[in-house]
Design a protein around this nucleic acid. Structure first.
Lengths: 153, 153
DNA sequence: CGCTATTAGTTACAATTGCAACTATCATAC
DNA sequence: GTATGATAGTTGCAATTGTAACTAATAGCG
């Protein structure tokens, strides 16, 4: 029985990290250059485009960002008038976020771009391969959550 | 024909990013806590464990890190005496890196741990699914490199 | 009510990271 | 040889990011 060696280039977390960094920097560059958006801002924009009137905490949950990151992204989007914020009538701690017309317009510009990039990326994969990938990523995600932080064990 | 919408949670780069962050922080926490290693340090350690006498530039290439990150990781590993460095006889700009006994020992501690984590992660995937995932990631990686940065186009 | 605990969101500060400039060495061309 | 350009690696600085402390508001409970 062969002793398992560790080759960095075969190590799944490493491979995912390299791939993700590559994709993220390509996408981030394009968003910044063309729309003046950072990735956190883009994420906030994206969730608010499909559901309006969310609070910052709800946005945080749906974007897998922490509340500080959301706070900063919201501030930036407010400054560029792509977002408007009111306080919730029922709970004055809560904010209620909504895209402005300008925000929707930016989203309408970015979204096709993002989808085109994804399509380009997935082009060499057959339909079945894409489904397998989707499924594997879902499973890995669940599994990672289940295993959780390895500290304190 | 349905107009393509963009749902963040289905967007591949987003999903990869969330998964990668989850894995990275779990692993980084464990490495730091148990071995006092950062992820860049771990990567350097890992490549030097399988091939000794590399220069910093060669390490950078094999770890997909940039030279600044390698420089910093090397400095940290030198300080903790897990690495030793000499200058190349043939080219005095070049350094020649090699693990010390202590470095090999740390690697011998970390590697099984990393492999166990990977195994735990992949447990719910059948053999064929793992192969499909491997293959898909390879293809995506190549494709991402091919598409390249989207700026200046 | 009044007290304590929780939650929403922001701010402040520390750690990481990325980028540009810099030093030192080597390669090439004349 | 000397000048020009390229390469290896480091350092400094700015931007990003994460963590913890903080403020304001609400909820729960006696």
């Amino acid at each position: 029985m062969p002793k398992p060696v560790l080759l960095l280039e075969d190590f799944l977390p490493y491979r995912l990290s390299v791939l993700t960094n590559l994709l993220s920097s390509a996408i981030a560059g394009a968003y910044r250059e063309r729309f003046g958006l950072s990735i956190p801002e883009w994420r906030v924009l994206a969730v608010l485009a499909s559901s309006s009137y969310l609070s910052a905490a709800e946005v945080a949950q749906r974007t897998a960002m922490d509340k500080v990151a959301v706070s900063r992204a919201v501030r930036a989007l407010l400054k560029t008038a792509r977002l408007e914020r009111r306080v919730a009538r029922t709970d004055r701690r809560r904010s209620v976020l909504r895209l402005t017309a300008a925000g929707r317009q930016v989203h309408a510009g970015v979204a096709p771009f993002a989808l085109a990039y994804e399509r380009a990326l997935l082009r060499p994969l057959a339909r079945a391969e894409r489904l397998a990938l989707d499924r594997a990523l879902d499973i890995l995600m669940g599994r990672a959550l289940q295993i959780g932080p390895l500290t304190k064990r």
